[in-house]
Nucleic acid binder design. Sequence first.
DNA 1: TGGACAGAAACTAAATACTC
DNA 2: GAGTATTTAGTTTCTGTCCA
Length: 347
Amino acid sequence: MGRDNARKGNAPTLADIARVAGVSVSTAGRVMRQQDWPVDEELKKRVLQAAAELAYVPNVMARTLRAGAPALVGLVVGNMLDPYYGEIAEAVTKHGEATNKMLVMVCNMQRDPMLELDYCRRLWEHRVAGLILAGGGFDQFSHNGELLDLLDRMERSGVVITTLSPRDIPVPAFCIDNEEAGRIAATDLVGHGHRRIGILTGAIQNRVVEQRLSGIRSVFSKSGVDYRIADSGSGAEWAISSVGHLFDADPDITGIVAVSSATSANVLHAVEATGRTVPDDVSVVSIGGSMLGEWSTPKLTRVDIALDECGRGALDYIAARVNEDDAPVAGPYLPRLIRGGSVTSRH
DNA sequence: TGGACAGAAACTAAATACTC
DNA sequence: GAGTATTTAGTTTCTGTCCA
């Protein structure tokens, strides 16, 4: 194997390529960078052959060291198992590669505030150019001071920080108007004649859930809706249990609002587990959960929470600040209703 | 004169060696 | 023991040299 030509125990470097190809390091570097620099075809061939033999890839850390322009962005998400954060990671990584040529490093804080602090510190140590907080809102009181201090020090060292959810931190928030999302979901059920409605809040009572609940309540109060709230926890078992409690409390509920993506993943199954069908017996509207909503049967009527736009906005902001261009203004972005087949009229 | 290439400096920050 | 100097990592880029 050509790997034997590299220094023992280390990945091959440009110097290894140059030595095997019989050229200088600078010539090897020019060939590997594929710049429009005149290099003899025969030498170019030898360099590329040596690189292939040694399985060479450029060392980005070393390149960053020399160029002084890191293209690394840290993304801290709440929980990888929650489809909401999966959609965020999908949107941010896709956009980072496509438009800004930034590599996005995704960290899973597992809904643990202390782990969020730890990941922020470690991303800072890796010299990220930007940091996107997408997992916050859990247990804010106990660690918010420490987080504020850490973010302040990171910003002073040049890291550009944004968030994808409303939080008590002084950084631009690229997110939707969550109250409006709640109002849209509630208005759709009310508009279809539903007056006895259950609300599944999701596992965590964070700022996002609070704002969405506020929007839902405002519509229900104006319309005289009799509503009940259940914390659905996380996972299918919790959802089944919570939906069961809703119907135990009020067997005549005809509509359910699933407030988060994690909740919407299980709500259809949970309703069916009570012996009812969607939408004939119970109508369901979800906030978020676009991917799951598209694949479910029936398709979920849902409020699109514009994760793609939010992720793109945050990355564009970081890229602009790093390049010292005019940074785009942070959200809020407008949610919109996407009709599926999970809501029917009660008129 | 200019194409083609080699040599060396520079980048950052931690680890190690050296001096007082 | 404290403080300072040197080395190390891998790559990019500037400058100098050679030759047709």
